[in-house]
Simulated scan of single mutants.
Amino acid sequence: MPATCRIVAVSPGSALLAPAAALFDDYRVHYGHPADPDGTVAWLARQLTGAFRMFVALRDTPAGQPLGLISVVELPASLRLGTFWSVRDLYVAAAHRRGGVARALLGHAVAGARAAGALRVSLQTEPGNTSAQALYAAAGFRPVPDLDLLSLPLTTGL
Score class of each variant (00 low, 15 high):
100 G>D: 12
87 V>Q: 03
93 A>I: 04
104 A>G: 13
76 P>I: 08
108 H>L: 07
67 L>T: 00
119 L>G: 12
114 R>G: 09
113 A>N: 05
68 G>N: 01
99 G>R: 14
89 D>F: 00
114 R>M: 08
91 Y>R: 01
98 R>F: 03
72 V>L: 11
80 R>T: 10
72 V>R: 07
68 G>Y: 03
111 A>T: 14
127 P>F: 04
110 V>S: 09
107 G>E: 00
114 R>K: 12
119 L>W: 11
118 A>L: 01
120 R>D: 14
125 T>M: 02
66 P>W: 07
96 H>Y: 14
81 L>M: 14
103 R>C: 12
64 G>E: 11
71 S>T: 13
117 G>V: 01
94 A>K: 10
103 R>P: 08
104 A>N: 05
114 R>H: 08
78 S>F: 14
72 V>Y: 04
116 A>C: 04
71 S>N: 02
96 H>C: 09
109 A>V: 03
107 G>C: 01
71 S>H: 02
90 L>Q: 04
105 L>E: 04
126 E>W: 00
102 A>D: 08
86 S>V: 11
100 G>A: 07
90 L>V: 07
123 L>P: 04
111 A>W: 02
126 E>V: 00
92 V>E: 00
107 G>K: 01
68 G>A: 04
104 A>E: 14
129 N>H: 04
125 T>Q: 02
125 T>W: 01
65 Q>S: 14
79 L>R: 11
109 A>M: 01
108 H>S: 08
101 V>C: 04
70 I>W: 02
86 S>K: 14
90 L>C: 10
121 V>D: 04
97 R>F: 07
100 G>C: 09
78 S>I: 12
95 A>G: 09
123 L>R: 02
90 L>I: 09
110 V>A: 13
83 T>H: 11
114 R>S: 11
74 E>T: 15
124 Q>R: 13
87 V>W: 08
108 H>D: 07
104 A>T: 11
120 R>I: 09
97 R>M: 10
129 N>L: 00
124 Q>T: 15
77 A>R: 15
118 A>T: 01
124 Q>D: 15
116 A>Q: 04
122 S>H: 13
129 N>W: 00
130 T>M: 05
68 G>D: 05
69 L>G: 06
78 S>L: 11
121 V>T: 06
66 P>R: 08
100 G>T: 07
73 V>G: 05
113 A>E: 01
130 T>D: 08
64 G>V: 08
102 A>N: 03
93 A>P: 13
76 P>G: 02
66 P>Y: 09
95 A>E: 15
98 R>Q: 13
109 A>H: 02
90 L>E: 07
91 Y>G: 03
116 A>V: 06
74 E>D: 13
120 R>K: 13
65 Q>F: 11
124 Q>C: 13
113 A>I: 03
111 A>H: 07
102 A>W: 03
121 V>P: 03
90 L>H: 06
74 E>L: 08
91 Y>P: 02
113 A>P: 02
105 L>S: 05
79 L>T: 15
97 R>T: 06
104 A>S: 11
130 T>C: 08
78 S>T: 15
82 G>E: 05
125 T>V: 00
126 E>G: 07
67 L>W: 07
121 V>Y: 07
112 G>W: 07
105 L>M: 03
112 G>Y: 06
79 L>P: 05
